[in-house]
Write a protein that binds this DNA or RNA. Structure first.
Lengths: 322, 322
DNA sequence: TCGCTGTGTTCAATCGGTTTAACAAATAAT
DNA sequence: ATTATTTGTTAAACCGATTGAACACAGCGA
């Protein structure tokens, strides 16, 4: 036994009409008003009886729209991307789209492949979050070539002329954070930097530090589970800043945990501030100090922009900053 | 200007051959070996030049396979489901499938609708995680009717005759947890129960308690952000157990945080054990005691089972316990 | 009685591929 | 020289929908 698809022709046969009639009726097209009431009812009844599900594949082929968006993320195992994805999912849903999610594990070849597949699947547009978090230049070329073909694509936190993107404006939050730390007497602030977090954050942080006459000390964070604890082992020695800004909340939590493990207190010995304001930061103690990033707002803007581009084939690249 | 799709016919025209030739060549079909080498090369060259992306929509229509799986979850804003989804995404990817993700916000109508849409999109199969977490009986009927039509569907932690499912075997972990708490002298263990977590966990816990002669005390957890803290306010009064088993890690963390907020220590005043062993439980202090649930294993099994069912139209419902 | 309008429905092309059968030309076998 | 086989390619049906044009028939006015 197999799962047999019920098609529009099955209904037509059973109802003794042409499949075009069925199509008109089921889609409540204007022309369907001319069709006899009892024919209409018969069609509906049979469709329901046979448990008919119209094939969006066939429909898409004809209409050229799949009502599908692609979401390319590095992965959703971290709170930040989980929230992002969740919001994007709901946003797409509200606008009548489905979301095809691809996790690239931050690997460029995987990303290129994911995008290629989304194009093959005729996704109406793509939201790509990876480039905004990776310093590698390879991304740029990929995005440009796709946009050149006038295919709707919105980049996350990756601003560049000729590309559509939504960007987070960290400057206000950074400013507050730095002022807060400066107010506690810190003149040097360390920050943890790792490959997959970059673009806006570092630039913004450095300029804010400059403005407040604070020395920013960079710590390279290895891209593995021990990245943070290695940094911690280093900074508990003399000569390092006692205030840190960590570029995402999960790492901030790890840093606090790590500091506690080696007998330091937060706050007290160290002051740590994170960025993102993820939802379950709330069950962390001590309460996480964090720079609020309006993830929901940003994600919604991304989906809105993409849908807008899809709706208007004459779209021009556009930049949205939240 | 619009994004114009390059089709197989465009290539055919440019190469001066029939589109069937192009199809044979590009897909490296056996018959293509008969086609002149230079014709083949010309076709490849033109396809590359025009930046051709074969339409999987058209292909799916013909082959009847979309190479798409549906994943229905309540939402992925919690760590547990984020990890689940992430693993499922990668598992699907490894097997050549794409994942269409639907978040139902734990709402039954949304779930029914999500499934309906996945059927319309001709997803080759569906993994549904919602029923395993909700006590409502409505789910059952939905799942049964779909399975009756022999459509491949795997349920998460929702065991029932005639349905395919993967279930977590909590008994070993529960046993350890209860023994651990009993070893610390507890004779009563409280547990937090809320609507969206149920099926295996409670049953398993109660039977383990019975075996160890421990009294299990149930606390209903409201389904809102304050659910846990309300319970905490109750249990700090006299007469309540000092040991608790919380059915998921995020709630366990919340409970610990909440207890600290009212001046209680963990461990010390209270012993808390969670279930799930989510990845970023690791940056929580005090270190979370948790019952390990092999999420990755379970998710992979679900995807495997589904793919197996898709591959063999004669599949019988099957139950996998991990 | 001829055309006209409106009603109820169907025909046939189309979307972008895949696949099987068929066919022409070249080569090999007899 | 004739048939058989191989080589290189195409024609056409098909997947499951949508849609504009067309058609048959009714009733109606002139």
């Amino acid at each position: 036994m197999r799962h047999d698809r019920v098609t529009i022709s099955d209904i037509a046969r059973e109802a003794g009409v042409d499949k075009s009639t069925v199509s008109l009726v089921l889609n409540r097209k204007p022309l369907a008003s001319r069709i006899r009431r009892d024919t209409r009812q018969r069609v509906f009844a049979i469709a329901r009886k046979l448990n008919y599900h119209p094939s969006l594949v066939a429909k898409s082929l004809f209409t050229g729209k799949t009502m599908t968006l692609g979401l390319v993320v590095g992965g959703i195992e971290t709170p930040f991307f989980a929230e992002l994805t969740n919001t994007a999912l709901e946003a797409a849903d509200e606008r009548g789209y489905h979301m095809l999610v691809s996790a690239t594990r931050w690997d460029f070849e995987r990303e290129r492949n994911a995008i290629r597949l989304l194009l093959q699947r005729q996704a109406d547009g793509i939201i790509c979050t990876v480039g905004g978090l990776c310093p590698q230049g390879e991304h740029h070329e990929l995005y440009t070539s796709i946009t050149k073909q006038h295919y709707p694509m919105v980049l996350w936190d990756y601003q560049s002329d000729g590309l559509s993107s939504v960007c987070s404006d960290y400057s206000v939050g950074m400013d507050e954070a730095v002022k807060l730390l400066a107010g506690k007497g810190h003149v040097r602030i360390g920050y943890c930097f790792h490959g997959i977090q970059w673009n806006g954050k570092e630039k913004s942080f450095l300029s804010v530090c400059g403005r407040h006459n604070i020395e920013a000390v960079k710590y390279l964070q290895e891209d593995n589970p021990h990245g943070i604890s290695k940094i911690v082992r280093k900074i508990i020695k003399p000569g390092h800043p006692k205030a840190f800004l960590v570029f995402d909340d999960s790492s901030a939590m790890e840093m606090i945990a790590s500091l506690k493990d080696v007998g330091r207190s937060v706050p007290g010995d160290f002051d740590i501030i994170g960025i993102d304001d993820i939802a379950w930061g709330t069950s962390y103690r001590p309460r996480l100090t964090t720079i609020r990033q309006d993830l929901k707002q940003l994600t919604n803007s991304a989906v809105d922009l993409l849908v807008e581009m899809i709706g208007n084939p004459e779209w021009e690249p556009k930049n949205i900053s939240v």
